[in-house]
Design a protein around this nucleic acid. Structure first.
Length: 290
DNA sequence: CAAGTGCCTTTATC
DNA sequence: AGATAAAGGCACT
């Protein structure tokens, strides 16, 4: 199967899958292999063409955010020279529409871990509790649905190298399974409301909630603030804050809730309705400019 | 190569 | 409200 992108579409499969928003993609030669829901599929980009196997075009468009008007989004977030530079470097990077359940568990696990560690945890969970699927002669594992993780003991979860996160994953799985969380409902409700509901889940704080909202629920105004974004603000956006406040957050490692909210509100009001796109460009640029 | 540092933070407690 | 500590374990240097 093939999708021919229009020349104005602007999409980079590599930037989109390398920027750290998703943890389940691997490139083998020129094909990207991924598991989404129950399906394994592969995809590659050749110029303006996307070729893929074992998925349909509508799914691909939805998952890779190809329905977003990227030209419009990028023109709205280009507010200064620095963001301009990140956009020029990674133009074509798009926000995925990941599976909300997998995204929620992934970002609960992501606290205080680096990306390779997160990938490892999600792989371990899938291998231990998901279904094996053979595709192109290789083994893949689907991400376990809530009912599977409900049955898992915290000890078994911890063995997937989740550590102290096992408890949060287990308790969140139980609550999701008991229908305390309807992802469909969350995507239809405004950002603030959806965020509040997510914050009720164990292991979900402001940062995790914002990631789930942005990467799986289509809330493009969400602006997750992690250590990298904090660094970006301290480097390029200090003049938007009081000196005293900047000194305070630079002097310590983690942010309090109200400090988080100040940085988050800056991102959303400065970059606008597509602040989440700005966040991801800034994040990826900062991480790759070591 | 060993040891130290840091990791897309949250929660509990004071 | 705000500060502080604790919580796996792995990857990177």
């Amino acid at each position: 199967m093939k999708i021919q992108l229009s020349p104005s579409c602007s999409f980079s499969l590599d930037f989109t899958l390398c920027c750290g928003q998703a943890f389940r993609w691997n490139k083998q030669s020129e094909w990207w292999y991924g598991v989404v829901g129950e399906k394994v599929f592969k995809i590659r980009q050749i110029g303006d063409a996307l070729e893929f196997e074992n998925a349909d075009a509508n799914f691909i468009k939805g998952y890779f955010g190809l329905n977003d008007d990227l030209q419009k989004i990028l023109s709205q977030i280009r507010k200064d020279n620095h963001i301009e530079r990140t956009v020029e470097t990674f133009k074509g990077l798009r926000i995925l529409r990941q599976d909300p359940w997998e995204c929620l568990i992934s970002y609960i696990c992501a606290t205080y871990k680096n990306i390779s560690g997160i990938k490892q945890m999600i792989f371990n969970l899938s291998k231990r509790f998901g279904d094996r699927v053979v595709f192109d002669g290789c083994n893949f594992y689907t991400f376990p649905p809530p009912e599977r993780l409900v049955k898992a003991t915290q000890k078994e979860l911890a063995k997937c190298s989740l550590g102290y996160r096992a408890k949060y994953v287990s308790e969140t799985a139980i609550r999701v399974h008991e229908k305390c969380l309807d992802f469909e409902h969350l995507s239809n409700v405004p950002y603030e409301k959806a965020r509040e509901e997510l914050l009720d889940f164990p292991g979900v704080g402001l940062k995790v909630a914002d990631c789930v909202l942005l990467f799986s629920l289509g809330k493009l105004e969400a602006f997750p603030v992690d250590v990298w974004i904090k660094r970006v603000i301290l480097k390029y956006y200090v003049n938007h804050f009081r000196k005293k406040f900047m000194r305070k957050i630079s002097s310590k490692k983690s942010l309090t809730g109200s400090e988080y909210e100040k940085l988050n509100l800056f991102g959303r009001s400065y970059f606008g309705d597509y602040a989440g796109y700005a966040q991801e460009y800034l994040y990826h640029y900062e991480r790759t400019q070591r």
